[in-house]
Nucleic acid binder design. Sequence first.
DNA 1: CGGGCGTACTGTATCGATCCAGAAGGTACT
DNA 2: AGTACCTTCTGGATCGATACAGTACGCCCG
Lengths: 355, 355
Amino acid sequence: MKPTLQTVADAVGVSRSTVSNAYSRPDQLSPALREKIHEAARRLGYPGPDPTARSLRRGRVGAIGVLFTSALSYAFTDPYAVQFLRGIAETAERHGSGLLLVPLSESEEEAGIQAVRNAAVDGFCVYCVPAWHGALDVTRSRGLPTVAAERPAGAGPDTMYVGIDEAAAARTVGSHLARLGHRRVAVVSDFLVPQRRTGPVSVADPAEIRYDVTRERLRGFAEGLAEGGVGWQDLLLCNAGANSRADGAGAAAYALDRADRPTAVLAVTDLLALGVLDALAARGLRPGRDVSVTGFDDIPEAAAAGLTTIRQPAVEKGAIAGRLLLDPPEDPAARQVLLPTDLVVRASTGPVERK
Amino acid sequence: MKPTLQTVADAVGVSRSTVSNAYSRPDQLSPALREKIHEAARRLGYPGPDPTARSLRRGRVGAIGVLFTSALSYAFTDPYAVQFLRGIAETAERHGSGLLLVPLSESEEEAGIQAVRNAAVDGFCVYCVPAWHGALDVTRSRGLPTVAAERPAGAGPDTMYVGIDEAAAARTVGSHLARLGHRRVAVVSDFLVPQRRTGPVSVADPAEIRYDVTRERLRGFAEGLAEGGVGWQDLLLCNAGANSRADGAGAAAYALDRADRPTAVLAVTDLLALGVLDALAARGLRPGRDVSVTGFDDIPEAAAAGLTTIRQPAVEKGAIAGRLLLDPPEDPAARQVLLPTDLVVRASTGPVERK
DNA sequence: CGGGCGTACTGTATCGATCCAGAAGGTACT
DNA sequence: AGTACCTTCTGGATCGATACAGTACGCCCG
């Protein structure tokens, strides 16, 4: 039998409560006795209070759940996601909490829902989960604090989130390109359509895009480009099957191989933009001269690649998400955080070459 | 008050056990009653059995803990680690388990130890944790199944691990370079010395290296190079502060800027090797011609960079680690897995240019 | 018609801790 | 001496579920 509090208590000849206090409230008993208890625990091989039992009684688990889409692999593929995770992990660590990764596979929604139901956590952080995923209902019904890693479309006054003004940030990208004279423009994005395929698509209106972040970013692109007279209908939309470098390149191919090749390609994430740059390189096209390319997020690789992009504070975003969960501010207004963004202009964008 | 099993039971007019069965053993009651119970649960907003209470009673948590060194950030920085995690996550998902990340910061060992003590998990996977870390004692005393992601130095017959023959794999690298005629050789590695600094170091004997994996790889390098008459004393050792691309470049600088520049640089991971390639590029040196470079792991980027390296099945390694924890084989021998490795020769290595 | 058996549900003990009211004993103050 | 108070430790109630033995009842079969 594994030793429990009682085992140790009997060995020392004190009550269960006292042993418990030796671990959880050391100031409640004399140093001598405490040492005696710890010594006995060592001798008996008692590893300390059982985390599960403690959680049940205390009503606190010491872990926060992070919900991801598309299995776990995606989460680790995008450096932006990694930075976000790092931020939240650092905060969690400081509060003595762990991080429970809850992957929500798209193919088996039910499995993900079960996972959320069974997750022993004190709160949820929802990262890049589309608003229609059934798992979100479960997080709600569990009644645990939940923070979204982006501003949800229908955010009530009591939903916590930390995000950015997606549309406004994207608008600066669009208007930057408009001012550089770009009129033939393609957009590379995932989630433009519900299907996970790579290729050109047509979407009558940005409002049709179901995934919040994508919709807002595209809306912003279009608004900014409108300054140059480019309308939504003029945009060449290329859907990427996933947010990956390879799919970015694949999607861009459809735009770059056209007779009326666009002069600018706006990608909805840096990872996709790096793929677009790959596609340019494969065709001997020069970024910023033959074709301008923009990204979104400003991951470390973006600087190395000279990519014009939107910088958003990823680590800080994660850190704030963690703080909202583990130490929520009194003021409800402070539970909805919008972080600042910057347009970082690098070599990948330039004026349209005149003929 | 939050609803519990009892709340639902009272509402429906059945016993608590029956409601429990409705969730956990649906075949134990009539479909009609089960539906009635679920309906009542929905109405009352009961989210299903509390995971913590269930865990306590069942004695199973439904999560496995993954121990990491150097905060969490490192874990996500190395693509190799990411692939390993993916493998273990896939297995966990199939078994209905989650993944609890337990960061062990180096600076505050005590915090990490507490985290391990409090982790509500069914088993531990130890990934790249140096053998002397105090947290390992705690995993042992908790008496949970534990699997190491590499063969530990003093592995008894009952320690589970999934690893590779580090020394043998490294030997093939060394002998490959010896055959190409390399005699002036540098090694870039982290953990050569306990201090986390980047620069040249001297180590009298590989046995002095405390970190198991590093020691074995270096031993292997040396053995392979010995075929060309290169002894341990002839190796130029460059320590990298961390397993990162930047530190790889930093460490390589010390070797490349010498008057008697080595003709080959062996890195102990691909990530470091990519940094070495960066350092070459910054000096206008051609990999495989001016200086040969090798890595270890064969991360996806290695192929793109044309890096000669050791391929080891990362995802599979993670998957096996997961299986060992969640579904341990009867046969004790099957609990110690050594996976095969291959030397993948690419353009980054070539014969020494003769003068 | 009664023994055997399967299905549907109940009730109590239990998992391993923490919380909290309170007892015992000692000290200090009036 | 009496009262108040602090420190140190105790014991029972409790967190929310699951396991398991047991009850009740209907059905089949020789």
